[in-house]
């Protein structure tokens, strides 16, 4: 594919943004600054970016518990994300959601999700809605290899298929459903094979190759916009960190991690950009520095932000009712 220099630079910047954001979150978690459960996307950046670079702000995504990468790739703002991770009132969800529950309806982010596989039926609904409203919006539904064993996978694939909905199902096969390796949790090697059972195309792609992901997603998005129905894309990738921060990862071999770290999608893309004259080393380093400073600004913003007011604990349950508070 012939991609513009501008687009390639944007892809590199976003991958770097995810990497730097996640690395700092990992540190902040270890320091006790970021509480709760945190699931990091390090190592999988090419997948979110390769897919989302094909989307418009008006398109939708549903995300997962490992959602930071999807949100950044779809245009989420680092400072509101970071503030949410810190549990501050300036966060995307006013501190009520945290890492696993960030949404930004204005740019089509229908929410990260703490329930594995729960985004699948929701993506059918946004796909159906776009169809009924007569728009050309598409929905990308991100989920993992673990979610492909949930009942929602089957129900959503079938429903999207019979209605030929503009939904692109993107399975991030990072080889593990928590501690269970793919060869223990399912008897097939390629999850994309399952698309055949629903009567739409399924394709497996190297999820660490951002250009390959971009190309496959491009075709799937085009099909969806043209009314040709869903596609299942399986991106083979790997999470460098544990399932959550603090996971001792005793269930996998060090050699396996090292093998995948050698396939790091970011330097691989950097090499491509340099070798083909799209960017100089210096330019790439500038991108990295500017992203680092953006992440630092997000942390500063979060740290300076106030905690939520306790009175806000009982708002937003309903649009028109405030639940009873407690006197203290």
């Amino acid at each position: 594919m012939n991609l513009s220099q501008e687009l390639l630079a944007s892809m590199y910047r976003k991958m770097m943004k995810i990497r730097k954001f996640e690395q700092r979150v990992s540190e902040l978690f270890a320091q006790g600054m970021v509480p709760g459960f945190v699931h990091l996307y390090i190592g999988e950046e090419a997948t979110a970016v390769g897919v989302c670079e094909n989307l418009k702000d008006t398109d939708y995504i549903t995300s997962t518990h490992r959602g930071h990468g999807h949100l950044i790739a779809k245009g989420g703002e680092l400072k509101y994300m970071m503030a949410e991770l810190f549990g501050r009132k300036t966060g995307y969800c006013k501190g009520k959601g945290g890492s696993m529950h960030i949404a930004d309806a204005k740019i089509g982010i229908l929410g990260a999700n703490g329930i594995v596989g729960a985004g699948l039926p929701i993506s059918v609904g946004s796909g159906l809605s776009a169809r009924m409203r007569g728009t050309d919006q598409v929905t990308v539904c991100f989920f993992g290899d673990g979610a492909s064993n949930q009942g929602t996978f089957h129900e959503a694939m079938n429903m999207a298929s019979i209605w030929r909905l503009p939904v692109i199902f993107v399975c991030e096969n990072n080889l593990y459903g928590i501690s269970m390796r793919q060869d223990r949790h399912q008897a097939i090697a390629d999850i994309s094979d399952r698309a055949q059972a629903y009567g739409f195309p399924g394709i497996t792609v190297d999820g660490n190759d951002v250009l390959a992901v971009y190309e496959v997603a491009h075709e799937a998005v085009k099909r969806a916009r043209e009314g040709a129905g869903p596609t299942l894309i399986e991106c083979k990738t790997y999470r460098w960190r544990g399932h959550f921060e603090g996971d001792p990862t005793t269930y996998r071999a060090k050699e396996e991690l090292e093998e995948w770290m050698a396939k790091d999608p970011i330097p691989r893309f950097a090499r491509y950009l340099e070798e083909n004259g799209y960017a100089s080393r210096k330019e790439l380093e500038e991108i990295e520095r500017s992203v680092e400073s953006e992440v630092q600004q997000a942390i500063d913003f979060a740290e300076k932000s106030d905690l939520p007011d306790e009175a806000d604990a009982v708002t937003d349950v309903y649009s028109d009712l405030v639940e009873e508070g407690r006197a203290r």
Partner: peptide
Amino acid sequence: EAIAGAAIGAAAT
């Protein structure tokens, strides 16, 4: 589950 989920996705959009 997909009926309920599809209703959610449609309502959200």
